[in-house]
Write a protein that binds this DNA or RNA. Structure first.
Lengths: 256, 256
DNA sequence: CGAGTGGTTGAAATCCGTCAAGAATAGTGG
DNA sequence: CCACTATTCTTGACGGATTTCAACCACTCG
């Protein structure tokens, strides 16, 4: 919990809330600034639980720095990761009284802001600006889930992995170079894409051998051919030709 | 567009908005009542587009009666259904300026309410009750997507189909008997679960032969053993024994 | 009746999960 | 710094589940 606030003493003036964030090592982009006055900064290390499934949803959260994973435990003991939360992503929204999923820090020194739900809602009641901010972050959360639905809907594992890489590149902080840093292990990618670890590994090496990506380290890579990766259609690792398209109902209707 | 309002003339007094809904044949549950004053009722027949991907998101929507499907068209020409919208479900929320997905009516006589976005947001600004209503329906939309993420994350197709049936039973109007009416074709189920039509058909017959469900018609069935269907674990159609569990990272860590 | 849609079943190819083993990396304590 | 260990990552082999291609049946509608 070392202080990093000193380095920015001479920059543009910052308010108290901003200062608090820097104090806990939060360097990422900030969303939901309008609720800063009630935000409680929390720091977690890898694997620590931020909120637990089935427990009262008394807080909304926003990732400040680090990575968090939204997990569900299935009947067969497998874990499924239903969401990978990067700095700026908000979570903890639920229609019921309890959390639908548990969320854990995926890396050390993960900082989140916790907003007491009833206080935040009262503030939103009296300030439309805050209500709009809330809608914005919930819509962004929905967009993340929709993108994940599309990824999970892809046919082959290589397609899923390629979509994951593209998504991570898109969500990476724009400031850096074009390298993509995977903030999670292969196991977590596997649980996120609902496939086995081995197949993830094979798909990554397949994409590498096809020249679509290039590894700088085990968890750092460079996307060589973004378009080919995105359109990473039905070509399998073996280089098989794409199958004849099998159009589903609406498509067939549209053709008639 | 025949009028069905006459039949309820002698019931409890209804307001003008309620009357308009009945006039267009809307019999389902109503959500977002607080925005009724700006709602525009629209009726669509099967396959008709309610909103188009990439077009300005000038409206929010709520399904009043019928069924709508939220579609994405992939590069290989396949359709993926990322959401199945039943009466009471709201959609059209997007973080950007344009719709992320197209939505089409899945059955004839589908009635939706269209809320002009800017007008609705202005109303939410001046009335916290409306803002809370909006949050509620967006949180419910998120819950639907999360459930779908869990379904897509299941391993075997039979599991996915079973989860789909359970979900449909849960979302069915509570008033009726315990029969589940599937409002969509097998093709749409396939596109919704991201599997092939043939496997959906095979899985359904498999579940029938195992005595977990019973068909009353092609699209009407009764869930015989809800618990077995829900826990429809790893047993395949062939009756293979469950495999030894392969725990992923966090699980293994927890065991140590 | 014929055409179109929706649904089911069969057979073959293949993709993927599982099991197994090994390599690479990081972390820990001496 | 090094041994030691745990974790992460990769590769191989095998069997099975799923996709694909094909054919057939039921139903509706003009």
């Amino acid at each position: 919990m070392r202080s990093q606030a000193m380095q920015s003493r001479s920059e543009t003036p910052i308010n108290l809330a901003e200062y608090r964030w820097r104090q806990v090592g939060a360097t990422g982009p900030r969303t939901l600034k309008s609720l800063d006055s009630v935000a409680i900064p929390m720091t977690y290390h890898r694997g620590q639980e931020i909120c637990a499934e089935g427990y009262p949803a008394d807080f909304w959260y926003c990732v400040i720095s680090g990575v968090a994973r939204q997990c569900a435990l299935r009947a067969d003991g497998r874990r499924q990761i239903v969401g990978l939360l990067l700095p700026g992503d908000c979570f903890g929204f639920t229609a019921g009284h309890d959390f639908d999923f548990g969320v854990e820090a995926a890396v050390d020194e993960t900082v989140v802001a916790a907003y007491p739900r009833t206080r935040a809602e009262l503030m939103a009641d009296s300030n439309p600006e805050i209500a709009r901010d809330l809608r914005k972050v919930t819509f962004e959360a929905m967009a993340r889930m929709q993108a994940q639905l599309l990824t999970l809907g892809r046919v082959t594992v290589t397609e899923k992995v390629a979509a994951f890489l593209v998504d991570m590149a898109r969500r990476s902080p724009p400031g850096g170079n074009d390298n993509v840093a995977l903030p999670v292990t292969r196991y977590e990618i596997a649980d996120y894409l609902a496939v086995s670890v081995e197949t993830v590994s094979r798909s990554l090496t397949g994409l590498k051998q096809r020249g679509l990506i290039k590894f700088c380290g085990t968890r750092t890579l460079k996307i060589v051919d973004p378009d080919a990766l995105e359109e990473c259609g039905r070509e399998s690792l073996m280089g098989r030709a794409p199958n004849g398209a099998h159009f589903s109902a609406s498509r067939r209707r549209a053709a008639s």
